[in-house]
Design a protein around this nucleic acid. Sequence first.
DNA 1: CATGAATGAGAATTCATTCAT
DNA 2: AATGAATGAATTCTCATTCAT
Lengths: 190, 190, 190, 190
Amino acid sequence: MRVISRMGMAAATMQEIAKEAGVAKGTIYLYFRDRDELVEKTLETVTAKLHESVDAALQTDQPFEQKLRAVIAAKLQFFSAHREFFRLYLSMRMPEGNPQQQRRQKRTCQPQYRAWIEQMAGVMREAMDSGEIRRSDPFRLALFLVEGSTAVVLERITEDASPPEAEDVDLIVETILGGISLRRQKRSAH
Amino acid sequence: MRVISRMGMAAATMQEIAKEAGVAKGTIYLYFRDRDELVEKTLETVTAKLHESVDAALQTDQPFEQKLRAVIAAKLQFFSAHREFFRLYLSMRMPEGNPQQQRRQKRTCQPQYRAWIEQMAGVMREAMDSGEIRRSDPFRLALFLVEGSTAVVLERITEDASPPEAEDVDLIVETILGGISLRRQKRSAH
Amino acid sequence: MRVISRMGMAAATMQEIAKEAGVAKGTIYLYFRDRDELVEKTLETVTAKLHESVDAALQTDQPFEQKLRAVIAAKLQFFSAHREFFRLYLSMRMPEGNPQQQRRQKRTCQPQYRAWIEQMAGVMREAMDSGEIRRSDPFRLALFLVEGSTAVVLERITEDASPPEAEDVDLIVETILGGISLRRQKRSAH
Amino acid sequence: MRVISRMGMAAATMQEIAKEAGVAKGTIYLYFRDRDELVEKTLETVTAKLHESVDAALQTDQPFEQKLRAVIAAKLQFFSAHREFFRLYLSMRMPEGNPQQQRRQKRTCQPQYRAWIEQMAGVMREAMDSGEIRRSDPFRLALFLVEGSTAVVLERITEDASPPEAEDVDLIVETILGGISLRRQKRSAH
DNA sequence: CATGAATGAGAATTCATTCAT
DNA sequence: AATGAATGAATTCTCATTCAT
């Protein structure tokens, strides 16, 4: 994970991975059929770790605003603690490489990404059903929220000195809630 | 552009590019010093095309809501018409490859991306100054908006049948405006 | 000649030669069948120029010592005035490149070089016959003299500030004629 | 060494070297960073071997004539046994290739060559100090001797049937020590 | 199980040569 | 005659993968 994060999926070499892992090149092939499988499994692992971290925030039975705040906070914390995973997370969205690699990557990565968006969409749908937020396409909404907040995470990772986590969580939650909450006197959904 | 879009920056080969261009490998080197320069120039070209398209929307002297709607619409239209550019646009954000390539990529691509975000941030700042939207960090806000809408663009490109453009523009504009407009009776800025 | 001198026979490119000649690459092929012929003809030209310069010194009917001095002086002067030819002159001795190139080079260059040595050997033989110098293998002697003095020429070309030409001519002529030993009596030839 | 000797420094290809070494192309890169390093190291090795062989002749405490004879003999024997090294030895004198390669070659090869000439010049200087040979520029003298004898070595390598080594050693030593003129008296040093 | 030297297919790049203008 | 854009074979170098130890 560290090497692929540092070099990118396409530029990471088996030699570098072996060195970082403290084993010989050949040893890797005892655990992965080939390079493709290694990359695939690595992406899966990263996603699993993120999900684990976010799931906790979603499982509790709180009102929508608290849930949203918890999810955004979990995401910010996760990537602050594991910056190296972020690049992998980004790679999942769009496959790279020759058509064959792309097909393979698409098969494994995209479902993982979509599952993660679907989960958020589910939370949105619940909140719409319970009247906490106004109706619109929950999947589109989830996409917008997830990627918008991802951009802020990326900025936090890239910039030299970031404001406290709470401040960015606030910005995101306020922005998105102010727009979708019915309580704050809004237009109804189309 | 087509080959880099299809294969990704790191996996695009000179051979494939030459084949797609209908020239011999050597011919490319009459126009670009080396592969790095080709990739760099290609990214610049793509960004320029996008900016051109969006600038038109920003230059007019309209209220914020119209401007925002025009920008989002321009972006959706641009990438609908030129799907192949989208992946290049995504690549601009995070450099790939070995440290040397990363330094080069960072030098050329990141400034282009930041310029684009800064432009949006400028529009946000103006709207805050004129009292059209509530105060918050305009750069963070621009990031959130740009990337959130990018996700919707990506989805439109990926999915088989998308709703009409106007519908997605509406969703985005309503969501973001509802959250930041002062007119719609909101909390004041922190 | 200038380009081959500067880059060496193997590294000189048609592009560089055309640029230096102020013509287009294609034009060269109107005057030479291919690169090999160009190199070959160039070496011939250089040798011809050197011979021309040295022949004058040999044609006159003077005693051996004066002839020798004149030849060495002509060589030093020639290469001082045309440093660039020197490297070509060196290349003539030993063919480079793949076997085919070597065969071709051997065919044209070596005879030229040998003719030049033979001419010196002829002068030596004459002087042996007239009793001016002691008998030994005239070809070996010519080789020794020609290459020994070539080394001094090379040094003069390479070093920053050389002594006056006359001084180096003296050194060479004195050494070859009188030897360097203070102790030993002249032996007669074996 | 064999391939560079046969083809010349500039024309030797990695493919040919690998074939001659009985390994795959890639294997070479496990032992040398790149082609330049391979050539550089090869030249160093050759020079080291020659020096080793000649040093033995110089270390002993004999009169000048014996030393000289020993050095010339060592040189003749070395190149008779290792013809392939000779071309490499010649390459050391004048760099080839593009300016960058030339700079690199100059840095490694020329010092080696000069060290070798300097060593001979040192022997000359000693003999001048002890009154064994007459005074003149010891470096020039060393150049003249070394290159003159190199020419004879080259001839021996090139020609089909050479006279016995001792004969050529004699020719060189007699010529340099006693000169070739029958008429002239020894002049004293300038 | 682990190793790492060796492999060779494949990528980037160069340059002599051709040929339509 | 001259041009120089285009070509593609040849060359250097990389790296995933294998296999004898």
